[in-house]
Nucleic acid binder design. Structure first.
Length: 264
DNA sequence: ATCGGTACCTGCACGC
DNA sequence: TGCGTGCAGGTACCGA
């Protein structure tokens, strides 16, 4: 579920965790821990202070006092919640000096990991879409042989775009999801760059998209699903030309687009 | 070094 | 009521 705007919203709702101390921790699900030892991990984070909570693409990184990092990825169904109760899919509970932080994830595609050094998976990500310059973005597009939709989903290209915002950005830019990245001329690359920034900025302002169950750390839903123009609107009229929106599978993922407005 | 395909998990909506 | 199917915001890993 959570893409850049949802993760940004979660991180903002976690702002007051900074300065809190982790009194105790309990980790349960081995899959979500990526094979880490639950008790050893609890011992590593216990009594540590949360020094910072930052977002890198779709990753959340908490810096702990005296070094070390707690990295969280929400996968498709992950949630960080500032209130209980714990349920069937609660895989981690951090008891703080004031309050509690729960990690839940029914599909277990997310992860929560402790590392002494800054996590390598985060260091390997591409640039933030809201920070990359147009020249760097356009140059990177020219270097890629693949089609534009899977490229936007590639976190080594830009970090944080997912299926919703890739489809929405391509619609706004008038670019077909199967267009080849390297063949986009400068004016279309500029349209895509502007559309990507606009859609992400608007979605953050709306608190993200709540498709089925996304909520921020205080349980609030987002509103941006009301502004989707193509995502999960298959068969509905295009907001621009009224042609029915189509859905095709591109590298195993649904792509929603207007066959008239979006050109290869 | 880059790709596209597959695997991983649960829950829900749907048709029969 | 139950069963099978297809679908869902994600990434990692594999072989070509």
């Amino acid at each position: 579920m959570p893409e850049l705007p949802e993760v940004e919203t979660v991180v903002r709702s976690l702002a007051h965790l900074v300065g809190r101390r982790i009194v105790s921790a309990e980790f349960r699900c081995l899959r979500v821990l990526r094979g880490g030892n639950p008790d050893a991990m609890a011992a590593r984070v216990q009594c540590r202070r949360i020094a910072a909570v930052k977002r890198y693409g779709k990753f959340i990184v908490m810096s702990l006092g005296d070094g070390g990092y707690l990295m969280v990825h929400l996968g498709m169904t992950g949630r960080l919640l500032l209130a209980g109760p714990a349920g069937k899919h609660t895989h981690a509970t951090l008891t703080l000096d004031r309050g509690v932080l729960l990690y839940e994830d029914s599909r277990q595609f997310g992860c929560i990991e402790f590392s002494q050094d800054f996590p390598k998976r985060v260091a390997r990500l591409g640039p933030e879409p809201l920070e990359v310059s147009f020249d760097d973005f356009a140059a990177a597009l020219r270097r890629r042989k693949t089609r534009i939709k899977p490229l936007l989903l590639n976190q080594a290209f830009v970090r944080g775009m997912g299926n919703i915002y890739a489809d929405e950005a391509l619609f706004r830019a008038g670019i077909h999801p199967l267009a080849f990245a390297s063949r986009l001329r400068a004016d279309r690359a500029r349209k895509l760059y502007d559309a990507m920034i606009a859609v992400l900025t608007e979605a953050i302002a709306a608190g993200g998209s709540s498709i089925s169950d996304y909520v921020d750390a205080e349980g609030r839903k987002g509103l941006f699903q009301l502004s989707h123009r193509v995502y999960q609107r298959t068969g509905e009229p295009c907001v621009t030309c009224e042609t029915p929106i189509r859905r095709v599978i591109v590298t195993q993922r649904s792509s929603h687009f207007c066959p008239r407005c979006q050109k290869r």
